[in-house]
Nucleic acid binder design. Structure first.
Length: 765
DNA sequence: AACGCATATTTGAGT
DNA sequence: AATATGCGTT
């Protein structure tokens, strides 16, 4: 067993063997970061360290699971069972459950997801009679999140001049009140949001030194993965826990810090040597993943950023091919080009589908790729978007379970009190809510008090409310006698959810039903595993697990040989032989809202760095010259990031010159795409969203007036408008909504918003 | 209370 | 484009 060190290079081995003090492992992309972490833990275990004294924090549940598996191979499965290994959120939720009483929460506290939190904020804004156009839930949510990440309780928030002033400047002076009410409501409901899990852990350790001492003693070895993505609250937890024994090892790469939008601080990793004086720094700079070309290209790109550790990443792999840049006329064509390239490589070079990844900046970009891949019959899997546990039918069923476990969970109650419809509408609910607020109880308890008050709710409605409450009580009781999966079955039956689906024979309804069955399976599986471990309260644990689970955490069977579609963010830590980074356009990547701050732009560049370094052998960058945005077409210019890569590593298309300031919108006509440029497409199978296909060939028919898409409109073009008749395009304005200035033959010059204009392009005369 | 139509908003990444 | 919200009708 002692020979596991032989699998490591010198730097990796040195990092693994250093276990008695603080250390920082700076691990470049593909340098074996996970390897160091897993081997280090295995090394500790092989040296007879008790697994229950090791705290290993990862970024995702999936990373934790995979690491556990690898450690099991190195050190034996039994050894890994008691490791404290998981995400910050799940491990500290576990601790908070143990210590719940101390901070005034029930042991069965529920976790509010973003949707629950948002709905509560909306309720509060309404109650305070504030304008929800100004007090937007999403904005308030991010203010509260920011506050909690910086350990600001409502009092701290109200006392912070800078923050309060910022709210006043934004014409939202009452955010502090909303926060205070939100905070109290969550507590009353026995609920924590994601940020609370970290905030309350901090408060617990701050206010209860004996508990802090206990956990300092439990966690003799602390390891943190992806340290560059920790936020202030996480940083403080780690720092406190490690303060005495200093046996803390953090692993990360400042060049891959991409989560500052949710409070991550690159400074945590940059300042680590100051926080833990005398720490050992290990630099892993040999990239084992990618070709020399890719590594060098990525280096040249990240060199454009300031404020980073000095790096010297290199590869001893073959030189490899250059990064190929491809241009497309539209987002739809971009998808076809990528799909065609994959198809060719698959058929001609026998590349496996699992070796391909299509990476994009935003989830919304996936649609065209899905359509194109489906038409080619190329199998793919897609990550992100709605996860299984976010689906309505699943959330509804889970809300019943939540309410049965914790009757103060008002958000769960609001979700299901009238689902399936049982005649309890908004009016009734707001009367009930008002009573609950007056009496300072949860809504569920307010139902029990309803007959003592004259709320103007008629008797039949009262009877319905009581029947609902009775049903929930019944579910709660059955939890003592039945196991979790049986309870779920029962809820599904008796709540009427199942009946809802039986009445409806549509395919959607069928698939919802299947999802519900899948949930029952998941509960079964979970409980079986928990029973094996001798754990009782498995329903509570299950509810916690699913609220902290993401789409990426689930591994589907039979998904192994497919093309991967995902955002760049979720690709972090993964690698693929062939990578397409798509949508390389200004305002998309880098995203428009990062352009006003240099720090934001640098983060986008790091994101691009992450994207490029996912590729082992071949990397493509693609961009489109026009793209559907918010339901209308807009012109795009190639991303500045393409130019950030040293041109010697690039293979550029002939039709763009990246030295000029992007594409000109007005002088360079957008060429029509010839039919034979495109893959074979089933005739008539094109949706109306594929306008380029009918752009050509229909223009000489005068009978049916069918407008062309705005992206095809160009200067000097002859066009026809349904009411103004024929005219010539003088100019196109692209700032804000796209407008075309058109000189009409009959009616003179007019400026038209292209999204309304319904113009038809005339064939050149 | 439930439904249908009109209008507003979204698209920034995820524990 | 797709979804969420709002308003009026039944």
């Amino acid at each position: 067993m002692g020979n596991i060190l032989e699998d490591l290079n010198e730097a990796q081995r040195a990092a693994v063997e250093f276990i008695e003090g603080p250390s920082l492992v700076l691990a470049g992309a593909g340098s074996g970061k996970t390897r160091v972490l897993t081997y280090k833990i295995a090394y500790l275990l092989n040296n007879k360290v008790d697994p229950a004294t090791i705290l290993a924090l990862t970024f995702t549940n999936k990373a934790a699971r995979e690491m556990k598996e690898r450690i099991a191979q190195l050190a034996g499965k039994k050894e890994t069972k008691n490791l404290w290994m998981g995400t910050f959120h799940s491990l500290f939720a576990r601790i908070l459950r143990i210590e719940a009483k101390t901070i005034g929460f029930p042991q069965s506290f529920t976790i509010y997801d973003t949707g629950d939190a948002k709905s509560l904020i909306k309720t509060i804004v309404k109650e305070l009679k504030l304008d929800d156009k100004i007090y937007k839930a999403s904005h308030i949510q991010s203010r509260i999140s920011l506050a909690k990440n910086n350990l600001l309780t409502p009092e701290g928030y109200a006392n912070n001049v800078k923050i309060v002033q910022a709210d006043v400047m934004n014409r939202m002076p009452r955010v502090q009140d909303i926060y205070a009410i939100y905070f109290n409501r969550c507590k009353k409901a026995g609920a924590m949001d994601f940020d609370d899990l970290l905030l309350y852990t901090n408060l617990l350790f701050r206010d209860h030194p004996e508990i802090l001492a206990k956990y300092r003693n439990v966690f003799q070895y602390i390891l943190v993965d992806e340290y560059q993505d920790t936020n202030m609250a996480q940083y403080l937890i780690i720092k406190k826990l490690a303060e005495v024994h200093q046996r803390i090892c953090v692993v990360g790469d400042d060049a891959q810090s991409i989560y500052s939008f949710r409070g991550a601080r690159v400074d945590n990793i940059l300042q680590y040597p100051n926080d833990f004086a005398g720490c050992k720094i290990f630099k892993l700079d040999q990239n084992y993943r990618s070709t020399q070309n890719i590594v060098k290209a990525a280096n040249s790109l990240i060199a454009k950023n300031s404020n980073q550790f000095e790096k010297n990443n290199f590869s001893s792999n073959p030189a490899g091919s250059k990064i190929t840049v491809l241009s497309a006329y539209s987002d739809i064509e971009e998808a076809y080009i990528v799909t065609n390239t994959i198809f060719e490589m698959h058929m001609r070079d026998h590349c496996e589908l699992r070796d391909f990844a299509i990476l994009y900046r935003t989830n919304a970009q996936s649609r065209h790729f899905e359509e194109a891949l489906r038409k080619r019959n190329l199998e793919y899997k897609i990550y992100g978007g709605l996860s299984f546990y976010q689906r309505k039918e699943i959330k509804d069923l889970l809300a019943y379970m939540r309410l049965a476990v914790n009757q103060n969970d008002d958000e769960a109650l609001k979700r299901v009190i009238n689902y399936p419809p049982r005649g309890i509408g908004d009016t009734t609910l707001s009367k009930l809510d008002a009573l609950a607020q007056d009496e300072n109880v949860g809504i569920f308890h307010a139902i029990g008090m309803i007959r003592n008050y004259n709320l103007g709710i008629n008797n039949s409605t009262i009877a319905r409310l009581e029947a609902f409450a009775h049903m929930i009580d019944h579910f709660r009781e059955s939890m003592h006698t039945l196991d979790a999966a049986e309870v779920v079955q029962k809820v599904l039956q008796e709540s009427g959810i199942l009946a809802e689906f039986s009445n409806d024979k549509s395919p959607e309804s069928l698939s919802r039903k299947e999802n519900l069955e899948e949930l029952i399976n998941a509960v079964n599986e979970f409980c079986a595993q928990k029973k094996e471990e001798g754990n009782e309260n498995s329903l509570i644990d299950f509810l916690q697990e699913v609220s902290l689970l993401t789409d990426q955490d689930k591994e589907e069977e039979g998904e192994f040989n497919k093309i991967t579609l995902m955002t760049i963010h979720s690709s972090k830590g993964l690698e693929f032989k062939h990578v397409f980074v798509v949508g390389m356009e200004e305002e998309l990547f880098p995203s428009a809202r990062t352009l006003d701050s240099p720090a934001g732009l640098e983060e986008e560049r790091r994101l691009f760095y992450v994207a490029v370094t996912r590729a082992r052998e071949i990397c493509f960058l693609t961009f489109a010259k026009s793209r559907g945005k918010f339901g209308q077409y807009a012109y795009c210019t190639p991303s500045r990031f393409i130019r950030d890569i040293d041109a010697v590593f690039l293979d550029l298309p002939v039709d763009i010159s990246l030295n000029t300031k992007g594409l000109s919108n007005t002088t360079e006509p957008i060429k029509r795409i010839q039919r034979n440029d495109r893959p074979v497409v089933a005739t008539g199978g094109l949706s109306k969203r594929t306008p380029l296909s009918h752009a050509k060939g229909k223009n000489d028919e005068k009978t049916n007036f069918s407008p062309d898409i705005p992206a095809l409109i160009q200067v000097n073009q002859r066009v026809e408008h349904a009411t103004f008749g024929f005219g010539t395009v003088v100019r196109i304005e692209t700032n804000g909504d796209i407008k075309a200035v058109i000189e009409f033959d009959k009616t003179g010059q007019k400026t038209l918003l292209l999204k309304f204009a319904r113009l038809r392009i005339l064939k050149d005369e």
